[in-house]
Simulated scan of single mutants.
Amino acid sequence: MSLLEQLGITYPIVQAPMAGGATTPELIAAVSNFGGLGSLGGGATSQDALNKQIDAIRALTDKPFMINLMVLSEHDASTFDTSMPDWLNKYYQEQQIDTVLPDKPAHSFTEQLQVLYDNPVPVASFTFGIISAQQVQRLQQLGTRVVGTANHTLEAKAWADIGADAVCVQGMEAGGHRGGWLPQSETDPLGLLTLIGQTRACTDIPLIAAGGIMSGRDIKAVQAAGAQLAQMGTAFLTTDKSGINATYKQALLDASNGTRNTETRLTRLFSGKQARGLVNNYLRDFASFDKTEELPPYPQLNAMTKFMRANAAKNGDAEHLSLWAGQGVALVKQERTLELLERLVQGL
Rank of each mutant, 00 (worst) to 15 (best):
T79M: 03
A164E: 03
F34G: 01
E294F: 11
Q134C: 02
Y92E: 04
E94R: 07
G143R: 15
L207F: 14
K90L: 15
E339W: 00
A164H: 00
V146C: 15
F34Q: 02
A235D: 13
Q198M: 05
L113H: 08
D317C: 06
A30E: 14
T305N: 10
A124W: 05
D86C: 00
G226K: 08
N315D: 13
T144A: 14
M304H: 08
A59F: 10
P85R: 15
L341M: 10
E74C: 05
L348N: 08
E94I: 01
T194P: 00
E155F: 03
P296F: 14
Q95S: 09
G43W: 01
T45K: 14
A30I: 02
P206C: 12
D81P: 01
T127D: 03
K52D: 09
Q47N: 10
L101E: 09
P183W: 13
Y91M: 15
K241G: 11
T110Q: 10
D317G: 10
G21R: 05
T199R: 08
E26D: 13
G171M: 01
L283R: 04
I28R: 00
W159I: 01
V167K: 11
I97W: 12
N89K: 15
G129L: 00
N302C: 10
H177M: 14
P122H: 11
A133M: 03
I28Q: 13
M232Q: 07
F307I: 02
T61A: 06
I13S: 03
K291P: 06
G191C: 00
L348T: 02
G38Y: 04
G148K: 02
V121D: 04
Y117R: 07
I28Y: 05
I213E: 12
T262H: 06
A313C: 12
L4G: 09
F270K: 05
S83Q: 14
H177Q: 15
K90R: 14
E111H: 11
A160N: 14
V136A: 10
L283F: 09
L40A: 12
I13P: 04
D103L: 03
F128A: 03
M18S: 07
T203R: 09
A29D: 08
V115F: 11
F289Q: 15
G179R: 02
T99F: 12
P189Q: 05
L344A: 08
C168H: 01
A201I: 15
A201R: 10
G216E: 10
L60M: 10
N119W: 03
E111M: 02
A160C: 06
L88C: 01
Q250V: 14
H107L: 04
G179E: 05
T82Q: 15
Q184N: 11
L69G: 05
P105G: 04
G38N: 09
Q334S: 13
Q6V: 14
K157V: 13
A275N: 12
